[in-house]
């Protein structure tokens, strides 16, 4: 029987990739952020999941404005990293799990989610950095990947409520997947930050704390705001919380405990956080 071990949530700020490349994990600026990860690495090394189902957003590597899917599910045999234009290393290739991808796709469409399917897609830092943080110093990623991209770039974005519902539908698909696999669900991005406009540099720790406090047992609290409301509270890119909301949805109604949480301001222009919700 497929087992869902829980959820791993983290910020995916590109500068983290730069810090890893330069070996700055112990630097005073970076240490409070990287200190959040040994407990997460330990948990993953104990649980040894086989597959990661990851909710993330693309930043103009795979998707451009010519075709912008609201929800896109990867169904490839492998997913490559590539040059994003501003100096991050090209990361390791991910092995896909097309059988599980197509099972999720069938289940989502049956559930009336009109998703886009991608048999070829690049994944950007929003995928690679969370993996680098979770499994540092490995030659190959120890899990197979099912990526699910949510449009957080071009409005109208899907509502928070819809993202939670999408996640819940993915969770039901995982429940009905006939395998012996252990699955970790991931949500990447956030927390509050705004890169653009006269309000650039906006951070809102009160809202971030609200999200962190309600993620475990009351995710409905996170979906009461409109997208404009979330942007107002979290910043234009803080809306990446949608990925966390969807990932929380995929964990379903099972009992969860918060195994670890770290919150630190700032990493680059961002309030950064990492969390594990463990299924008990």
């Amino acid at each position: 029987m497929t087992e869902i071990i829980g959820g791993y949530f983290t910020s995916h700020v590109p500068a983290i990739g730069g810090a890893i490349a330069k070996g700055l994990q112990g630097d005073p600026y970076w240490k409070p952020f990287f200190d959040g990860f040994p407990p997460i690495q330990k948990w993953l090394n104990q649980e040894k999941p086989d597959v990661a189902v990851v909710f993330y957003n693309d930043h103009g590597l795979n998707f451009f404005l010519d075709k912008m899917p609201t929800f896109a599910v990867g169904a490839a045999h492998e997913y490559q990293s590539a040059d994003e234009g501003w100096g991050l290393p090209v990361y390791k290739t991910f092995t896909g799990d097309p059988a599980l991808s197509w099972h999720i796709i069938e289940a989502l469409v049956d559930d009336e989610f009109d998703i886009t399917t991608c048999q070829k897609m690049f994944v950007d830092h929003a995928m690679s950095i969370p993996f680098e943080l979770a499994w540092p110093n490995v030659d190959t990623w120890p899990v197979k990947l099912v990526p699910i991209a949510i449009n957080t770039v071009q409005h109208p974005l899907p509502s928070a409520k819809r993202c939670l519902a999408l996640g819940r539908a993915v969770g039901r698909a995982l429940e009905s997947w006939d395998s012996d696999d252990k699955i970790v669900v991931m949500g990447t991005g956030g927390l509050s930050h705004q890169l653009d406009g006269a309000r650039a540099g906006f951070i809102n720790s009160d809202y971030d704390r609200f999200c962190l406090d309600h993620l475990v047992n009351d995710p409905e609290a996170l979906v009461q705001d409109s997208i404009a409301g979330i942007v107002e509270k979290a910043g234009t890119q803080g809306v990446e919380i949608l990925n966390w909301i969807a990932a929380r949805g995929a964990l379903g109604a099972r009992t969860l405990t918060k195994r670890t949480e770290n919150y630190h301001i700032p990493i680059s222009n961002t309030a950064a956080a990492s969390v594990v919700l463990e299924a008990v």
Binding site: H155, A198, A228
Partner: peptide, 9 residues
């Protein structure tokens, strides 16, 4: 939203 442009259609 003050100082903010939503990237819409």
């Amino acid at each position: 939203i003050e100082g903010t442009t939503l990237f819409d259609g």
